[in-house]
């Protein structure tokens, strides 16, 4: 079959688009109305996201963990609807804390945890001392339905993973194609082959630049939702911006060199420089500097804890689909450029 790449690409993208937008979220804990716990009776509202409190009212249990060392059970529960429950917990005289966490157990949703509103860092939900009648345990039977994993700040925007990350992968693939053809363009002595390779390199870089812009836009949207700003001071973001500028400079260099052979040679040299810079900026530097992206100052990628099987089953096809799409557009672009060149030469 001649067009199998295109059909495969379209099928993968359709699958990724449909599932990344329609796949439900797994339930998770959203927020707690209390900011401080004091001795005596504490009343607050526990709200979940996509939970089934009403449906599983009978089996619902809410736990409070204080300073990662003591657990108490809520003794009065008043379910408002599927995502909200009023909780009242009685604490002994000695307990008072700003570092606390909540967990809710029920038969449908499994265990849901809300971190402490103040000072999340290093907070672990532990049994420790506390009320001996109240045994907290993570329910083995997790949420039975399927859904994307719930992450505290990301929530629904985890769907962007299937759009934002493949853009960068596609850009990397296209820039690598450009890099390889730039090297080959320099390797050949004959003018004709050199020009053809140059054309391939520049077509790939042009499409790669479009994917770079798309990656920046999707990333900017995501940053606005999770980090609060359209642009944040993160090594990966700044690096991506520099990469964008370098490749724009590449096209400025091309357009300001009138002679064809010279343009081919100069832009091939600059492209090699740009590619090396891109690898340094996006793959090496973020590992050394503190940042906001997942796996900061380590491996800049989603770790195995964040990327569960339901995400993987959409994420990998999305990557493959976008890479194929990028390759397809690059081929089209190359052929258009070639035709234009041919046309110019004939006139």
């Amino acid at each position: 079959m001649k067009n199998w790449i295109k059909i495969l690409c379209a099928a993968l993208l359709l699958y990724a688009a449909v599932f990344s937008l329609w796949h439900p979220m797994a339930p998770g804990g959203l927020a707690v109305s209390a900011t401080e716990l004091h001795p005596g009776r504490n009343d607050f509202e526990f709200s979940g996201y996509g939970t089934h409190f009403k449906e599983a009212e009978g089996s619902l249990k809410v736990y409070v963990s204080i300073d990662s060392s003591a657990v108490y059970c809520a003794d009065i529960l008043q379910v408002v609807d599927d995502s909200r429950v009023f909780v009242s917990v009685f604490l002994p005289d000695t307990i008072s804390s700003k570092r606390f966490g909540f967990a809710a157990n029920n038969d449908v949703d499994g265990t849901i945890i809300v971190d402490s509103p103040v000072g999340h860092e290093g907070f672990v939900f532990m049994q420790g001392t506390g009320n001996p009648d109240c045994r907290y345990s993570v329910r083995q039977e997790e949420f039975s339905g399927f859904g994307f994993p719930y992450q505290p700040i990301i929530i629904e925007s985890i769907r962007n993973l299937m759009w934002h990350v493949p853009m960068w992968f596609t850009m990397f693939v296209l820039m690598t194609i450009g890099f390889i053809f730039s090297i080959r363009a320099l390797g050949k002595e004959e003018g004709k082959i050199e020009l053809d390779h140059d054309l391939r390199a520049s077509s790939a870089a042009a499409v790669g630049l479009v994917f770079c812009v798309l990656g920046l836009v999707t990333g900017s949207l995501w940053a606005r939702f999770t980090w609060g700003d359209w642009w944040t001071n993160d090594p990966q973001l700044n690096g991506a911006m520099v990469v964008f500028l370098v490749y724009v400079a590449y096209f400025i260099l091309r357009s300001s060199t009138p002679d064809e052979d010279k343009r081919a040679r100069l832009s091939a040299i600059f492209n090699i420089f740009a590619f090396v810079l891109m690898v340094v900026l996006l793959m090496v530097m973020p590992r050394f500097t503190e940042g906001l992206h997942p796996g900061k100052s380590g491996n800049p990628a989603f770790s195995k804890y964040d990327l569960d099987s339901s995400l993987r089953s959409v994420f990998y096809p999305a990557c493959a689909g976008f890479i194929l799409l990028g390759y397809w557009i690059y081929r089209l672009n190359y052929r258009i450029q070639k035709l234009e060149q041919h046309h110019e030469n004939q006139n």
């Binding site: 400079a249 300001s256 340094v280």
Partner: peptide, 18 residues
């Protein structure tokens, strides 16, 4: 490339950014 004096700045700035 004979693109004039300004080209050094255009090409150079992104390159030296890191």
């Amino acid at each position: 490339s004979q693109g004039g004096v300004g080209l050094v700045a255009i090409l150079g700035f992104p390159i030296i950014m890191p």
